[in-house]
Amino acid sequence: MAYSDKVLDHYSNPRNVGSMDKSSNEVGTGLVGAPECGDVMKLQIKVNPQTNIIEDAKFKTFGCGSAIASSSLATEWVKGKTVDEALQIKNTEIVKELALPPVKIHCSVLAEDAIRAAIHDWKAKQGAAKPVAVETK
């Protein structure tokens, strides 16, 4: 199967690989897996608590090229968005952007799951820090 140029670009030159301090209150971590193939992906976001804007994102993926490209793209996309905006990202958009073939759809699903899980983790931390939820929208 041939990878698209965009996948190859993200794969050979992934953006935002790395990790952030998991215990920080500003950091949300999502660790997810694809049971179809046994691949795992970790995505972290750093959110400004005043603005709810995602200021930084990092990922680490052990999986196929499409999963690496999907998570690389996901970190690019969430940066600069508010958490609620980031929750709108759908795997189908990733599929479109990277021109993933049907057998690789689950790789993009993994990236969407990771974003949602990271945001969920961050929200849970805010909820624990102050009793009132941060979401104002």
Binding site: V32, G33, A34, P35, F62, K90, N91, D113, A117
Partner: peptide, 30 residues
Amino acid sequence: EQSKTATEKARASGEVKKQIVPPDLLEEVF
């Protein structure tokens, strides 16, 4: 299809998707 289906459900309900395998296994694998 199971993973995709679960993601779509989570998206629709706004809930966080239940991971299909236990989190500590994912942690170990990672």
